[in-house]
Design a binder for these strands. Structure first.
Length: 616
RNA sequence: GCCGCGAUAGCUCAGUGGUAGAGCACUUCCAUGGUAAGGAAGGGGUCUUGGGUUCAAAUCCCAAUCGUGGCUCCA
């Protein structure tokens, strides 16, 4: 069997499981009204309306037992067709209003996909002109469902599955619609593959940045400060600073200059940029007691940066002008959308804006891609990019020729940098095409982390200009870029990617010194060595506490410290240490003794060169 | 914002109508130790907040806040 055949087979299994689960639910709750039950990554779900019955995970056993009976019965999936009007009657007779709505959409528009349907038409009753003659059904035992298929032959051939969770969803994703319950299951061709998937989820839970953030003392939340507003401890702040210093230094090498802009601004700025109209309800409002100005917390930096650009007349010779600012912006996100560091209301961006001529776009994009490449190589994440193009809709501003040229330039730059890429139409911003970066973490999950965006719209709205060679006024192009994206979000990804085992350069504590006893000569020696390490710019902690050596070693392990050094009489006599190296970064089992000076210099070098593995 | 679930010591959690517990952490003392937990004693909670029901509420009801699983959204 080819990979494609296997994929098709797995798809059919998952889809069949959705039907089997629906069958079980109908047996258990005969009044169930069914929505849709599609295949998703790793499994399937079915949306059901059970009236006042609220499902919980405790009901899963019951459902799984009913499902396994259906699977054991091994009844065939039988396909048949009905004319559309008979199908609608079937839904009416069966008390299935959601199916009836889908069938009406199918009759009128030939599709049930909400986003392809005109909003006013969605769910309205068709008035004749049938787009579809017949629709297909699948029947297994007593359960019949509107379905395009395909399915496996019979209910016995569905592989391994497990019900995972239940949650509230809106019918067709619109909050004006009734709420249903979505039961989601994982499903794979074999129990072994299911096991691998469940193990990955268990590993993901172990690495959850919210859990590690508390265990490793990286950040905290306070009820008095508010939701979505993380407070970073000294350890967490170290990581933030190392990351942002890295992207700042990197961009400085490419000619970016730091700017600084205030965190509040008059609302006028965002009225001009168009953000007030589009995102006004997500801006924090600030009231002045001195003036009548209506102020907002800044939700982004580009409008500010345009003000700096336009503060002087610019010649074509001055371009490109490159600004960078790592700064916090504020967005009043809906409460249900907040979570850990992944989505917060105070977002720190390593933001940059290039103002350049058309003919400079490619070089500038090139530079930013080189930065992204270097950053993600350094953190050890595989990167691929999505080229996000416009489609044929009228959702975009600017001339089509301009777009086509820009899209071609983006693609050329991506290829020139040897980046793994794919193209997708309809994913562009309204003002220009984008390059979106997806990074794969250590357990195979992909995260969107950064974007580079071309912008033709804001330069025009803000009437930005430069004087061209021929003396004419021209409008520059703006390139937005954030490499880490949101530092908070990046940290959530980074913590989970590393499982809290930070490499030397970001480790909040790089070296821990453990004294064997409390003799003053021992503790003084440890302090002296610590000072020597600090003088080399290292982050070092001395553990002179009154605990057994075994206990102190264990603590250092739990804090995931890269290097732990035990000091006692032997070290004082020889001025040599045998560093204990965190397992993930060790390259050999037995580490020989090394002079203290050489050890500390080596570690300092490793921190500077941002290596992932030790050279000891 | 919507639906579901939750909030008890610094952390992880037990207690389901009669006035609060464990492990770890913390403090002190003993032990002075050699690469993942030495021993003993002790301190610590108006049970998130505000209302209500009840003779009596951590426990039942309502609301707020925060968290969490989903949906929707993400310049």
């Amino acid at each position: 069997m080819s990979d494609n055949d296997n994929q098709d087979q797995l798809h059919a299994m998952r889809h069949s499981l959705a039907h089997i689960m629906a069958t079980a639910i109908q047996q258990l709750w005969p009044a169930s009204k069914f929505g849709v039950g599609p295949v998703i990554d790793n499994g399937f779900y079915y949306d059901v309306d059970l009236g006042d019955t609220k499902l919980s995970e405790e009901d899963f056993d019951k459902i799984e037992v009913a499902m396994s009976d259906i699977i054991k019965a091994n009844l065939p999936f039988e396909r048949f067709e009905l004319p559309i009007d008979e199908a609608i009657q079937w839904a009416k007779d069966g008390g299935q209003p959601y199916k009836e709505e889908l069938l009406n959409d199918l009759k009128r528009a030939g599709t049930t996909v909400a986003k392809d349907l005109n909003a006013e038409e969605l769910g309205t009753i068709a008035d004749g002109a049938a787009q579809v003659e017949n629709v297909s059904f699948y029947r297994n035992g007593d359960f019949t469902d509107l379905c395009r298929g395909p399915h496996v032959e019979s209910t016995g051939k569905v592989g391994a599955y497990k019900l995972m969770r239940v949650g509230g969803v809106y019918w067709r994703g619109q909050d004006s619609n009734p709420q249903m319950q979505r039961i989601t299951g994982a499903a794979f061709a074999s129990p072994k593959e299911l096991r691998v998937y469940l193990d990955m989820l268990a590993e993901a839970r172990k690495r959850d940045h919210r859990k590690l953030g508390a265990e490793l003392d990286l950040f905290v939340f306070s009820d008095m400060v508010g939701s979505g507003l993380p407070l970073f401890t000294p350890r967490g702040t170290t990581i933030r600073d190392e990351l942002s210093n890295f992207t700042n230094d990197m961009r400085a090498r490419y000619g970016f200059q730091k700017v600084w802009t205030p965190h509040i601004t008059k609302k006028d700025l965002y009225e001009k940029s168009g953000h007030w109209a589009k995102f006004g309800d997500e801006l924090f409002l600030v009231k002045s007691q001195e003036t009548s100005d209506e102020m907002v917390m800044k939700p982004m930096n580009c409008p500010h940066h345009t003000r700096i650009y336009e503060s002087q007349p610019r010649s074509y010779r001055d371009l490109p002008v490159r600004y960078m600012e790592t700064t916090t912006i504020y967005r009043d996100e809906k409460t249900g959308e907040l979570g850990g560091l992944s989505r917060v209301r105070a977002v720190t961006q390593d933001d940059s804006h290039v103002f350049c001529r058309q003919d400079q776009i490619e070089t500038e994009i090139n530079n930013l891609l080189a930065c992204a490449h270097e950053l993600y190589e350094t953190v050890g994440m595989k990167l691929r990019v999505r080229l996000s193009y416009r489609d044929d809709s009228d959702a975009y501003l600017g001339a089509v020729e301009l777009w086509e040229a820009a899209q071609a330039q983006l693609k050329a730059a991506v290829i020139a940098n040897g980046l793994d890429y794919f193209e997708e139409a309809g994913e562009a911003a309204f003002y220009g095409p984008k390059i979106d970066f997806m990074a794969t973490d250590a357990i195979g999950r992909e995260h969107q982390v950064a974007t580079v965006q071309l912008d033709f719209v804001q330069p025009e709205r803000f009437e930005l200009a430069y004087t061209a060679e021929d003396g004419s006024k021209q409008t520059p192009v703006m390139i937005h870029c954030a490499l880490l994206g949101s530092i908070e979000r990046f940290m959530s990804v980074y913590i989970e990617h590393t499982a809290g085992k930070f490499p030397i350069w970001t480790a909040p504590e790089q070296v821990r010194l453990i004294s064997v006893n409390q003799e003053s000569v021992t503790t003084a020696f440890a302090e002296e060595m610590a000072q020597q390490a600090r003088d080399l710019g290292l982050r070092v902690v001395v553990d002179n506490s009154n605990e057994s050596v075994g206990k102190k070693i264990r603590d250092a392990e739990l804090w995931k410290v890269p290097y732990t050094v035990v000091v006692g009489d032997k070290e004082i006599a020889s001025r040599e240490v045998i560093p204990r190296i965190r397992k993930d970064m060790a390259v050999r089992d037995d580490v020989p003794a090394i002079g203290i000076d050489e050890f500390l210099k080596t570690v300092a070098n490793e921190a500077r060169s941002r290596v992932l593995m030790t050279s000891l």
